[in-house]
């Protein structure tokens, strides 16, 4: 057993776990942050995606011990004082989910994409992702309900609406 300290959604947690504990199980079973879903277990489906230092990773294929070097952000960390994150609002507005199983991973990859687009916008580039860029960003994730079209539309909605906030 070993003590692992993780910074998740700006809070620090220490738990004593086996070294083989994967990040997804640390989040779900130790911290009871069950918003992160556990799917294929083989780094294919992407429902377990969380952010480490702002970049999406598949938490079924990262040891919790490795993640302790990074700031982890999960779907529970999306909602802020201003209310829901634009990506969450986008998925509601454009019907980006049906059963909801893939949604936490999709939301986190979308958040990382939009953060990257904001940085590109600040550097003088286009702050809005193209549909091809949105599709590429979620290409490591599987949805069996929507056919992806409404997910792409939801992320585009979020990009267009975060633009308004960032550049009033």
């Amino acid at each position: 057993m070993m003590a692992v300290t993780l910074r998740v959604n700006d809070r620090e947690y220490t738990r004593t776990v086996e070294p083989r504990t994967l990040l997804v199980h640390f989040l779900r079973d130790e911290l009871r942050l069950t918003g992160t879903h556990w799917g294929c277990d083989t780094s294919n489906c992407g429902t377990c995606v969380v952010l480490m230092d702002g970049e999406p990773v598949k938490s079924c294929t990262v040891l919790a011990a490795t993640a302790s070097r990074y700031a982890v952000r999960t779907v529970e960390g999306l909602e802020g004082e201003q209310g829901l994150d634009p990506v969450q609002l986008g998925f509601a507005a454009e019907h980006g989910l049906q059963c909801g199983f893939c949604t936490p991973g999709m939301l986190m990859s979308a958040r990382a994409l939009l953060d990257r687009m904001a940085a590109r916008g600040s550097a003088g580039g286009n702050p809005l992702p193209t549909d091809a860029e949105i599709r590429e960003a979620i290409s490591g994730q599987i949805c069996r309900c929507t056919g992806y079209t409404t997910i792409v539309r939801s992320i585009r909605w979020a990009a267009e609406h975060s633009g308004e906030e960032a550049h009033p």
Binding site: G46, T61, E136, G140
Partner: peptide, 9 residues
């Protein structure tokens, strides 16, 4: 190679 999320690691 793989997908963008896997390529991050």
């Amino acid at each position: 190679i793989a997908d963008p999320v896997v390529r991050n690691r």
